[in-house]
Design a protein around this nucleic acid. Structure first.
Ligand SMILES: [Mn+2]
Ligand SMILES: [Mn+2]
Ligand SMILES: [Mn+2]
Ligand SMILES: [Mn+2]
Lengths: 228, 228
DNA sequence: TACCAGATTTTGACAAATCAAAATATCAGA
DNA sequence: TCTGATATTTTGATTTGTCAAAATCTGGTA
């Protein structure tokens, strides 16, 4: 019995909530329900069924976490999602701002064989168009720990490595300000009171963005001596 | 309310049954149920619901036929299916023998925008890898009337235009004997008693195939003076 | 320690899609 | 016209996924 679309979506949501909360935390039902756009009671019912199938462990009033079986399945859904996103950008010429919604459906419909062709065609990539890491076929992921524009050093050139928001509007905003993976930026000033971050980007252009937005842009120091 | 996968599959099945039975025939429920792999009672229930939605007309004990609304939806599902099949062959390098099952799932998951990119990328093709005509975005299809290897003239070179069976095994058989769209064949002899057809294919190779198989290979006379 | 606000679970209902099996209709042949 | 074989419909259940709203729990605060 292969998992339904719904089951795949629940597992993926738990997986992603778990990676932000930390590996030992339980995901609260309210958060899970919100992520999936269902009413809390629905999530409770579904999670109980998933627990029956051995895909999650569930503690009433505490929350839910994936078992290793559930974790593997979830990682494979995420793998499909991210490979599809990259495929849509690289091969189909779609914009990175739009591919998420399309991938949200396709991730449940592609076969293992097709996903492997896609992977091969893309040269076994490590990250998707947003810089999100692509889980291996075995279901393992390594998530590099990056600074954000809110935590990185000032006056020091940084490369954008990842933009962690799937909303078309935010991605368009990021693109408009050259905050896409691969671009270089530098934080000029942080104003805690104003809740803002002033940036100098490619071509000396300056922008000031909110702290909220800044925290979604993950960066890494530009290596001192780039390989010739 | 966009139609569910199930509704799309029912409409497509009625559409296809209708094109083989003829435009004025009602599709019997038993046949529809068999095509969809459900028990007859299920088909009856579903068809009644489709009739409620105005997608089909249903006459108890007689059968079902698409309304023009249903026909348009069905044609669009078929359009997606066939464009996806061609895409999988041309762009993803899959075999024409395998793409049907993959397309059966993807046809319900691709957006209109993506399907249009695919159509564009393929150069607005008229037929899929099996020679099946691709419905227009408006939901219209023109089905050319071809001879089959069972009805075409003897000793006269014919081009294979279409192979009308989606089974991997049959398609592999056809491929083995150079009976793929674009190839040239010639019928040497028909033996009604033996229920067989003897063919001479590319490279003078001869094969004898059954009448059943022969009827699935649609052909057209090779034009007298091919365009230089 | 008692209470409350907020989160969570429970209960009861519903829609979609399906099957098994009983009931019924149709149609061809005697 | 009657009869049976076959096709179709009906009936009653089941599974999955969902919501609304009532009931219950939990973690702090007074
Ligand atoms: Mn999804
Ligand atoms: Mn992504
Ligand atoms: Mn289908
Ligand atoms: Mn085809």
């Amino acid at each position: 019995m292969l998992p339904s679309h719904t089951v795949e979506n629940y597992l993926k949501a738990v997986f992603q909530a778990q990676t932000v909360l930390g590996p030992d935390e339980l995901v609260p039902m309210g958060q899970l329900a919100a992520a999936l756009g269902v009413v809390p009671g629905t999530a409770t019912a579904m999670v109980k069924a998933l627990a029956q199938s051995g895909l999650v462990r569930y503690e009433a009033y505490a929350g839910v976490r994936l078992t290793s079986a559930g974790e593997k399945l979830a990682a494979l859904v995420l793998r499909r999602h991210r490979l599809i996103e990259l495929f849509l950008v690289k091969v189909m010429g779609m914009s990175w701002t739009d591919v998420h919604d399309e991938a949200e459906h396709l991730e449940h419909a592609v076969s293992d064989r097709l996903i492997d062709r896609i992977d091969e065609m893309l040269g076994r990539p490590a990250v998707d168009p947003h810089g999100d890491p692509i889980p291996a076929p075995e279901g393992t992921v390594t998530v590099p720990a990056y600074d954000t524009l809110l935590t990185c050093p000032l006056h020091s050139p940084m490369v954008v490595k990842r933009v962690s928001d799937q909303e078309t509007d935010f991605l368009r905003f990021a693109e408009r300000h050259d905050l896409t993976p691969g671009q270089t930026v530098q934080v000029e000033e942080r104003d805690t009171a104003a809740d803002s971050v002033r940036l100098r980007g490619t071509g000396e252009r300056e922008v000031t963005i909110g702290a909220r937005a800044a925290s979604k842009v993950l960066v890494e120091a530009v290596p001192r001596r780039p390989q010739s």
